[in-house]
Amino acid sequence: MIEIKFYENKDHYKEVMFVREDVFIREQGFSTDEDEIDNHCIHVLFYDDNKPFATGRIFIEDGNTVIGRVCVLEDYRGKGYGVQIIRQLEAKAKEMGASSTHLGAQVQAKEFYEKLGYTEYGEIYYDEYCPHIHMKHVL
């Protein structure tokens, strides 16, 4: 059974990092995935029979509501969970009073976000070796 849970503290952090480390470090080759933002954001976790398999986070930065660290374990891809993560975080953003959401997309995932109504802005930038682009969606 699929469950979706939001967390505002670090009691769940081991589960969040289980998913993020598998995707961002082991699969994509980033050297680290933890940062100071994890201490003050809201995480969403998707579970299948109590096993975490997808996650994302939302936080406020410079007055913008930012979505980040969206990832799904390989066995669960292609089933719409990435879209569900974004929609869950957008709903949370609305609850927080946001009128738009921002994110830094890996360039290879830009088309995924465009299909969800996001538009790019600014220049391409690099997070470690990986090109990213800023994107925004009006809620």
Rank of each mutant, 00 (worst) to 15 (best):
Y81V: 03
G68V: 03
L73R: 09
F59L: 10
G122P: 04
A93M: 11
Y129N: 13
R26M: 10
V19P: 00
E74G: 04
K136F: 05
V19N: 01
V72A: 01
E36M: 03
M96V: 09
K5P: 04
L103T: 05
E34C: 05
D75C: 06
F18N: 06
K10H: 13
D48F: 12
F59H: 11
F30R: 01
K10R: 15
D49L: 07
E95C: 13
T101M: 09
I67C: 04
G63F: 12
Y7N: 11
E3D: 14
R57C: 05
F6W: 08
D75G: 08
R87K: 15
Q106L: 08
V19W: 03
I124S: 09
L103Q: 03
Y47R: 04
I86W: 11
K51S: 09
K94Y: 12
T119Q: 15
R57Y: 10
R77C: 04
H12N: 15
D11R: 09
G104Q: 11
D48N: 13
F18C: 04
R69T: 03
V72E: 01
S100P: 06
D127V: 09
D48K: 13
G80Y: 13
E36H: 05
F18L: 08
K79L: 12
V66M: 10
C41I: 03
F6L: 15
Q106K: 04
E123C: 07
P52C: 08
N50A: 10
L73K: 12
V107R: 02
R57P: 00
Y121R: 06
H43V: 09
R69G: 01
I60F: 10
A54S: 12
V83E: 15
M17W: 08
H132K: 05
V138I: 15
E21R: 12
Y7T: 07
F24T: 01
V44Y: 02
Q84I: 07
Y118M: 07
D49C: 07
Q84L: 14
K51E: 13
Y126M: 11
H134V: 02
C71Q: 02
E114L: 07
G117P: 05
L139V: 13
I4P: 01
K51N: 14
N9E: 14
G29H: 13
T101R: 01
Y126T: 07
V83W: 10
G29Q: 11
I25W: 12
F24D: 02
E8V: 12
I60N: 05
E95F: 08
I85Q: 02
T119G: 08
H43K: 06
I86F: 12
M96H: 11
G63H: 10
C130N: 06
L139Y: 12
F53T: 01
